[in-house]
Write a protein that binds this DNA or RNA. Structure first.
Lengths: 209, 209
DNA sequence: ACCATACTGGACTCATGAGTCCATGTGGAG
DNA sequence: CTCCACATGGACTCATGAGTCCAGTATGGT
């Protein structure tokens, strides 16, 4: 262990701790990650962690919330692609789908899902923190875009919430299965194939003839 | 705590332990469940647990494997409904879909997913034990049924593996989201609605005109 | 009836990790 | 320059739980 001499100081230790915590939790899981591990990963002493957070659980919550925010932001950015779809709807959907799947396959995103699942029984309020941000953010945003497309006659008239739910289902579930719950990384080509298959089925069901 | 005097004996303690273990793990998670808890739930002494299993991890593996087998069997039974679909294909698909979703919503099934996700990093071979049985069992079985239907002209010609993957995606992902990863139980009507929506979209994409 | 086998419970060791305390160092604001 | 708020690390307490050991007890096959 070669220690890099990092300048002491009261900079953004807190942020460093939050970032490091998520990395450690992602690698080792909640119970296996000791506060000491987190402190070391952050280049900080254990006591400093306790200066910023009440206890281990508070560190965990903060790390999960921050990551959920980041992942949601990425997802929303991908959906924005549909705001101005251009002449080729299929191409726009394909790009959006591929963008969403790349985020979904990212280790950060996988770890977020894993950790949420894992700690549900212990921290029920994790749902508000994580799922509350993701599902309650992404679904409606997608539904908004699809509603506009339907109104513009690009899709057949339909319930946009249901369409959004199914579009996302066609994307995420196959990737989740194929990547073995995020444990093996899918080849880019597979991801593209899933995206195109999803868009194809979606357009058959919701497209205008 | 009123202790029921249970007759001692070398009956199927092992089975009792496996069953009890899954219940305890489902309630408390792997790390939170102590071997003592499991022994008490099984009405057995801690030492007896260690008579039958090498260590806590072995108990866990056995419990997960047994549950995965049971859940897979239920799933396969539901898919069997499609072997003789009868004149009304939509009705047959609806029944199958609803059957699959009821299993999927069952606490046992939810706990199985939760625990698998949670312990992935620690026990990578859990994938072979659990996912290996479920995904590798259900997907192909579904694909078989769909292939027959396509051959009989009930569905348009298509890749049955892809169709099966998407059919299952349309079922499970929405339920997973709506039930908040299995933490709140969905009203029967919601489950039925998801099933019918999935079948509707599936038939629009894969049905014959 | 007998004996091997399995079950019991309770005491034991041992490792681990959360959270606290404190004496000491250090950077930046005034 | 001088505080002061924050950072450090190392030692400490305390609780918990895995896994072992053993002496005593019930069971079922023969």
């Amino acid at each position: 262990m070669v220690e890099v001499r990092v300048p002491r100081g009261r900079i953004d230790k807190r942020q460093a701790i939050v970032d490091a915590a998520f990395r450690v939790f992602a690698r080792q899981g909640y119970e296996q990650a000791s506060v000491q591990d987190i402190a070391e990963e952050a280049g900080v002493s254990k006591q400093t962690v306790y200066n910023h957070f009440q206890d281990k659980q508070a560190v965990f919550s903060a790390a999960m919330a921050a990551t959920a925010d980041a992942v949601l932001a990425d997802n929303l950015a991908a959906v924005e692609r549909l705001r101005d779809p251009g002449p080729d709807l299929r191409a726009a959907l394909n790009e959006t789908a591929f963008g969403l799947l790349k985020i979904c396959c990212d280790p950060r995103s996988s770890a977020l899902r894993s950790l949420t699942y894992a700690q549900l029984t212990r921290f029920p309020d994790l749902l508000e923190v994580v799922q509350g941000r993701l599902a309650s953010g992404l679904g409606p945003a997608m539904a908004d875009r699809l509603a506009r497309l339907a109104l513009a006659g690009e899709l057949r008239p339909c319930d946009p919430e249901r369409a959004a739910e199914q579009f996302l289902a066609l994307l995420t579930a196959p990737v989740e299965t194929r990547s073995r719950m995020g444990t093996r990384k899918l080849p880019e080509d597979d991801v593209k194939a899933v995206a195109e298959a999803a868009v194809d089925t979606f357009l058959r069901a919701y497209g205008t003839r």
